[in-house]
Amino acid sequence: MRTHKKNALIAAALIILAALSLWYATKPATTKLATPTAIPVRVVSVTQKDVPRYVSGIGSVISLHSVVVRAQIDGILTKILVKEGQLVKTGDLLATIDDRSIRANLDQARAQLGQSQAQLQVAEVNLKRYKLLSVDDGVSKQTYDQQQALVNQLKATAQGNQAAIDSALVQLSYTQIHSPVTGRVGIRTVDEGNFLRMTDTQGLFTVTQIDPIAVAFALPQQMLPTLQGLINDPQHAQVKAYIGADTEGETGNLLGEGHLTLIDNQISANTGTIRAKAEFNNSGQKLWPGLLVTVKIQTALDKDALVVPPTVVQRGLDQHFVYRVNGDKVETVSVQMVYQGSSQDIIKGVNPGDVLVSDGQSRLKPGSTVQVLTDPPPVVQSESPQ
């Protein structure tokens, strides 16, 4: 009997254990609140400084004076007195042409002038004598008039002879070729001993002014009012010329600094651009005629401007905004875009020193928890054992 009760108790205990196991197995799990995950971002601080504004364009270096040296008379080139690439000044003797024939013509014209002057002198003496005799009818009026006409004729002949002398002197001056400008001599195309003609279009060489020099460039027509204000500024707008730079002029080698000197008198209807010119001092000869350069013109200066990198400002549906870090969370702040550049933007609506998100905005919304990332430490490579 005791054995039967004992077995009954064991069976009841097993049933209770099985029921408890089943209840725990089917018990609904309690919902645990997920811990918010911090979004990694990078940040920058708003800086305040004076920021110059620039406009950029592509320009071509041009010489202020470039002259093709040609012969003005026919003749043999007897001597070239300069070397290729030599710097010359205005009036320097560059080359000479055979002048023997012209000198002979000059001597002949001078001899004819002397002959005419001698004849004129005799005719004027006779004219005075005839004038005295005509008072007492010692000579006819007709004879006196003929003598007066002879004097006038000889005067005209003498003037013609003098004109021939002047012409020969001009021709003689053409046998010595002088530099019309200060500049650099180009590659020579004719050697000594060649016969030159006035009709030769190639010329002997070119003389091109290098210092000062100019850069011609084109800007959109919307820049015309700005350019007009700059060229009327007595301080002269500063223009910088670069090579190897993009249109923003942020990279590349600076070749020179000049000032705006000219705006073209019309806008191109085909391209909608206005041409302008700037002049540069070029003592170092870094600017060379024909060289393509990038020009930057300072159009304004924003004092105490609030500056951020371009990645900070986000574009909303109807306005710009930024994410500002407040503790470990972010908030959106509407801003006004004052100036947009390639490396920095000028904005309004924030304060100097505000910490703004510069990377990682795609996962953010107002009130998001953020984790500010720092730049990883530089990797130091250990030297391999020898």
Rank of each mutant, 00 (worst) to 15 (best):
V370N: 00
K49S: 14
A25T: 10
D318K: 12
K296C: 06
I73P: 01
Q119R: 13
A300C: 03
R363C: 03
G138M: 05
S268D: 15
V125G: 03
H320D: 08
Q171T: 04
Y339G: 01
M223H: 11
G229P: 02
Q340D: 12
E383S: 14
G258Y: 02
T37R: 13
D302F: 11
G160T: 14
Q340M: 11
A12W: 04
W23C: 10
Q371T: 13
I97L: 10
D166P: 03
P376K: 13
D137M: 08
L150F: 01
L77G: 05
R275F: 08
Q72S: 14
N152C: 00
E331N: 07
E257V: 15
D136R: 11
I165M: 12
N232C: 01
I39H: 02
T96K: 12
E84M: 00
K32G: 01
A104C: 00
P378D: 09
Q221W: 06
K286Y: 02
L230F: 06
G327C: 04
Y242W: 10
Y130H: 10
K89T: 09
D328F: 06
P52S: 09
R188H: 09
I274M: 00
K128Q: 12
S116K: 08
L306V: 06
G114Y: 09
E279D: 12
D359I: 05
W23N: 09
Q228T: 09
D137Q: 15
P309Y: 04
K296D: 07
I97Q: 03
K5Y: 14
K365L: 10
A156E: 08
P309K: 07
T157D: 15
Q119I: 06
I62C: 01
E331A: 11
R188T: 09
N270W: 05
T96P: 01
A29V: 12
Q121N: 11
A168Y: 00
G353R: 11
D304M: 11
A276V: 08
Q148F: 07
A71D: 03
D354G: 07
N105P: 00
S283E: 13
K141G: 15
T189I: 08
F195R: 13
K131D: 12
L204Q: 01
A13V: 10
R324C: 01
L317W: 10
I73D: 00
E250H: 14
L150Q: 15
S134M: 09
N7S: 14
P220F: 02
Q171F: 01
D50S: 15
L317G: 13
G138Y: 06
L254M: 12
N105M: 08
G290H: 04
A25N: 15
A163H: 05
V67H: 05
P376A: 13
A237I: 02
D302L: 11
V380G: 03
A269I: 11
V325K: 07
G367K: 08
A29G: 11
T271C: 06
D145A: 15
V170P: 03
D50Y: 08
V308T: 04
T226W: 04
I10Y: 12
L154T: 04
S342W: 00
V307E: 02
Q162L: 15
S116M: 04
A245C: 03
I231W: 07
N161D: 15
V357P: 00
Q298K: 12
I347H: 03
G75R: 00
I297Q: 06
S362K: 10
G256H: 07
L356A: 06
